[in-house]
Write a protein that binds this DNA or RNA. Structure first.
Length: 608
RNA sequence: GCUGGUGUGGCGCAAUCCGGUAGCGCAACCGACUUGUAAUCGGUAGGUUCCCAGUUCGAAUCUGGGCACCAGCUCCA
């Protein structure tokens, strides 16, 4: 099944390297993985003849297939299946396509309830899911296995060179939590052993960089069970890095004409009734608290409070655009199973702003806003951006014309910023279309980060107005936006992006001084004091350990600079400078190093 | 929330199947060594085995409940 419906004729495939080349592009890999999914199903059915098989598409980096064997698969099962798959590959069974009528297909899969369900839903008028008129396509490999499938496939199972089953897990039939739970086996397949090896390396590297592992290891943050799931505490070093991120963000916002506001964490139900949150997202909110005859909720968003600030007095068109910014902490009752380190939590802080502007200012404001977003994110070493433009969902408030107008303004901003983007139809928030900015990290993983939303609903619900040049009252437009999205989440992304080796301006400890022996402690202390007086964060490793031991500790700690000092350095007031990941340079005058690191920090230099 | 899994000194692990004094490495601490670039040597201390019940002469181990985490599903304003 290819999402874009492309058909590829592989009846006469290119041979040798050309096939590998073909399989290297996304389409080729999808075909390869889809074929491997068939082999997986074939293997499972040969081992468990009573198994019911549901379906298995290619996915990013691999494929899966859903089965029902009446119990979960064990790791031993996976080994057996993988071995059986290897046999099927070795037998080089040809994949062949055939077309049968819907009734023939129904008969063929009569004892396969999941397949039968697909067939029974197929519309003879439509041409999708492998259905051509009232006929449906099947793929067989050899005479051993047949599956309902649109294809295409590789010519034969022997083309599958490098695959591996990675894990198994439960999944609802057709993604519906009210339907039966099937057992899903995930695997990966690549055009060559080398590509598979690279993929496995990436997996391993991602595991090493996992912020849930690095965070506690580097003493940055933790999730005390006593506080509760999805609620993090930042330790001094994590808190320091977070403060540096916030300080930079504040400075940039101040320069860009934002004004700073502060709002409480709780509000009465009437506010969230007015904003619509209680109607639309009650189940995502923490439960209410009763107090003195009123009902309070922890806020799931900052918007309603910013609306109140805008509405607190008459606004003139001269004040617009009015940009209200806050590091606002919000609470959302995420279902327990979805919590994930710092990237999916129940309490988090948004770098949230609401911009109120006149209709004629909207386009220009969005365009400069998008540039601002990119500038700030680039300072953190993010270089690759993609965007999604999410349009009106099924559940929405407001008038369709307004949605169209807002969507068009967002689209123009994207075009003028030159960010590649795709449309995400129906993915907008209930009150607004939005741009989601995605970034790619050092391991080429995509993360959704910034969001820009044009909102016509809140100004209406809160009856916001401004007095125009004509002396009349008008409704402002409002833009919701967040750059980091959530500071916690962005912190985690940076931690993984850098694998813990933060650029110097962000690193909690920037320099470690290592005296060679205890008669060099004095000079080490002087060096540290000098650096500290210029604002550099420096520690001295005066522990009673061998030099090699302390050098190793400095390396492992990922501190940006290690300065080794001994007799020669003390005498000449120089340093042996070893940058993290670089080579040592001896005899560097203290003042030179100081000037150099200060410049690096001031420029917020990031590794290239 | 659902399915499956995991929870043992700060960290990584062993003992869990088949109940019988919880053990190892690293880190920490103390001492010796005074070092020129990724682990010096010797010693010491540290555990309510996630929590609460139950079974048992006896529970890290078995049973039930809870909490937290992990892989997914679903969800993600």
């Amino acid at each position: 099944m290819l999402p874009d419906g492309t058909q590829v004729d592989l009846a006469r495939p290119p041979e040798g390297d050309a096939l590998v080349l073909l399989q290297k592009d996304d389409l080729g890999r999808q075909i390869l993985r889809h074929s491997t999914a068939h082999v997986l199903a074939q293997a499972v059915l040969s081992l468990w003849p009573d198994a019911k098989y549901a379906g298995g598409p290619p996915i990013e980096d691999g494929f899966y297939y859903d089965f029902d064997i009446g119990r979960p698969f064990t790791p031993e099962d996976l080994e057996k299946i993988e071995a059986r798959m290897a046999e099927i590959v070795k037998e080089d069974q040809p994949f062949t396509r055939e077309e049968v009528s819907l009734s023939e297909a129904a008969e063929l899969f009569a004892d396969q309830p999941y397949k039968s369900e697909w067939i029974s839903e197929m519309d003879p008028e439509a041409s999708e899911q492998g259905v051509i008129g009232d006929r449906v396509s099947l793929y067989r490999n050899g005479d051993k296995f047949v599956d309902l499938c649109r294809g295409p496939h590789v010519p034969s199972t022997g083309r599958i060179r490098s695959f591996k089953l990675t894990r198994s897990s439960a999944a609802y039939w057709r993604g519906d939590e009210h339907r039966p739970m099937l057992q899903r086996i995930y695997g990966t397949a690549w055009e060559s052993p080398k590509a598979l090896e690279q993929y496995l390396w990436r997996l391993e590297e991602a595991q090493k960089r996992d912020h849930r592992k690095l965070g506690p290891e580097m003493d940055l943050f933790s999730f005390p069970p006593e506080i509760g799931g999805g609620l993090a505490v930042f330790h001094p070093k994590g808190g320091l890095i977070r403060k540096i991120m916030e300080d930079y963000s504040r400075a940039e916002h101040e320069a860009a004409g934002y004004e700073f506001v502060v709002t409480p964490h709780l509000a009465k139900d009437t506010l969230f009734a007015k904003s619509g949150h209680l109607d639309w997202y009650r189940e995502g909110m923490y439960p209410p608290m009763e107090m003195e005859g009123a009902t309070y909720y922890p806020k799931p968003m900052n918007c309603p409070m910013h609306m109140l600030i805008y509405g607190s007095r008459t606004r003139s068109y001269r004040e617009l655009p009015l940009r209200l910014f806050e590091f606002g902490t919000v609470y959302r009752f995420e279902r327990s199973g979805v919590l994930h380190g710092l990237t999916r939590v129940r309490g988090f802080t948004q770098d949230d702003a609401h911009i109120f502007c006149m209709p004629e200012q909207l386009e220009a404001e969005l365009a400069s806003l998008l540039q601002f977003v990119l500038k700030v994110l680039r300072a953190f070493g993010i270089t690759e951006f993609e965007a999604e433009l999410a349009t009106r969902p099924d559940k929405y408030v407001g008038k369709p014309e307004e949605w169209d107008q807002a969507t068009e303004a967002l689209r123009k901003a994207l075009v003028s910023a030159g960010i590649p983007f795709e449309m995400a139809e129906g993915e907008g928030a209930f009150y607004a279309p939005k741009i989601d900015v995605h970034i790619k990290d050092a391991l080429n993983r995509r993360w959704q980060l910034s969001t820009l939303q044009v909102d016509f609903q809140f100004p209406q619900r809160f009856d916001l107005e401004f007095v125009g040049e004509d002396g009349g009252r008008h409704r402002p437009f409002m833009i919701h936006r967040a750059l980091f999205g959530s500071i916690e989440r962005f912190f985690a992304i940076l931690l993984e992006h850098y694998g813990g080796a933060f650029p110097t301006w962000l690193a909690a400890d920037q320099v470690t001084v290592v005296p060679i022996s205890d008669r060099h402690y004095d000079y080490a202390g002087q060096v540290a004091e000098h650096l500290r007086s210029t604002g550099i964060r420096v520690t001295v490793d005066a522990s009673d350990q061998s030099l090699g031991n302390r050098v190793r500790k400095a390396q492992v700690s990922k501190v940006p600079y290690m300065l080794v000092v001994g007799d020669k350095e003390a005498e000449a007031r120089t340093l042996s400078v070893k940058p993290r990941g670089g080579t040592e340079k001896r005899g560097v005058p203290l003042d030179d190093f100081t000037a150099q690191i200060l410049e690096e920090v001031a420029e917020r230099r990031v590794p290239v």
